[in-house]
Design a protein around this nucleic acid. Sequence first.
DNA 1: CCTCATGGTGCACGACGTGCATCTGTGCAC
DNA 2: GTGCACAGATGCACGTCGTGCACCATGAGG
Lengths: 259, 259
Amino acid sequence: MTGSHPGPPAGGLRTTGVQDGPAGAGVAPGTQVAVTVVGRTSGDGTGGTGTSSTGRRERKKTATRAAIRDAAMRLAVRHGVENVTLEQVAAEADIALRTFFNYFSSKEEAVVAGAAGDFLAFVAEFRARPRGESVLQALREAALAVLDRAVTDDRDHLAALLVIRSERSLVPQLLAALAAQEDVLADAIAARLEPAAAASVYPRLCATTALAGMRIALDRWLAGAADTGAVPSFAVLRSELDAVLGELAAGLDRPGTPG
Amino acid sequence: MTGSHPGPPAGGLRTTGVQDGPAGAGVAPGTQVAVTVVGRTSGDGTGGTGTSSTGRRERKKTATRAAIRDAAMRLAVRHGVENVTLEQVAAEADIALRTFFNYFSSKEEAVVAGAAGDFLAFVAEFRARPRGESVLQALREAALAVLDRAVTDDRDHLAALLVIRSERSLVPQLLAALAAQEDVLADAIAARLEPAAAASVYPRLCATTALAGMRIALDRWLAGAADTGAVPSFAVLRSELDAVLGELAAGLDRPGTPG
DNA sequence: CCTCATGGTGCACGACGTGCATCTGTGCAC
DNA sequence: GTGCACAGATGCACGTCGTGCACCATGAGG
């Protein structure tokens, strides 16, 4: 249910001064965004808006897509991505091999599709944030909302992330999925700014950096998960994210050693 | 060589206050780094140190590797990556098809290998920067040195970059090559800092962000090249880079609209 | 000159990915 | 309800990719 977790003092960003949005920086109570993750539409994969069903046809398609994605992930978790053939995936999803390619163009794409959906949801969530929040603040809240949902709603989701993280052959595909959202997020960021700022490098840079930051925070969190075996707390993930965003807000330069 | 170009007032970063390195922030005159790009060693591809020839064997290997890389790039430029088969590449490089896989594991990897080498050189260059420079300052100078060499020394290099930029199927491979350098660069950055800072997220974040920033600056520059057709000036590239680094130094947050 | 190690090559084979023709079920108009 | 038009699923064929294995050729070292 997208519960916003209790957790430690929601410190927000230690933004060193730039931002000074309205007091309680948390989510405005009525602003539940919801996003409906399910979407992923169909053919194009760019993330069209038509989530609502035109009818049974659309529903079946999204169901098939989800079935393939889940089958691919399930098999990848069990046997390792490299050791799974598309034929097996097709069998597991109960479709013809040929049909697989109507939905995904490669095994890797199917396995990563879940995570790619999260990025999509992240951007959507960001768009829905109240305009009073600073850019990084809104990015933070959007990220937390998506990650919260991803980690709590679905236990398999965590296993999926761990597989993606550990399997080397998935890295390119994952990064590509991430990069695919850069432009969309950049537009969303630009929409929050005055024309002057919107026309600069800033939106693009901020979008790319924010997505990279999420990747890093998540990676470090998952690294902890991989080490200890136990599922780390959501609070840890939040602090990782805040650390990253704090650095980005404060500026990345560091003086050299005078000597 | 590696002439440092005349160009407009080498303004360095407008770092808003954090950094305050020694006066003339430019390259210390005697500190030519040199890096010897040629390297790329051989098998592992991780960038081992043994550039020097153990003998004819090593030399032949690097020559073969370069021949394959150049052949792949040449054909990709001429016919488009998708329309080139490995058989053609092998023929162009005058090797057996089977031999191709002794050097690269895919067509895309071969085409991108040139750019990947640049990233490697970038990290090496950064390591060699004087410790007096701030982190972003050193990153800037390293980037300029590599880009300068890449753009001026070799006219084909620019064509290569344009192909990589335009071909969608190369994106994942390119990003993967970039990501492969993140950890190395992060270590190099950490080596410049006190233990406390070195142990934080900062090095990793800064490394990832810097590489992403280079990608963005280069992308925008190449976009200009693609539009106008003409080869844009190196000064433009430098200003793109400075804009990016300036933003990163100043911090990425932007206040929300109060209303 | 002999021997060893390393890299190049040919071969076989399974997996990947796509174009094309066909079949089936849905959406829709009547 | 009936029938038409089309989107999507499937089967088939074909070319490319990528790898394991065995063998040959050449440089390194004695």
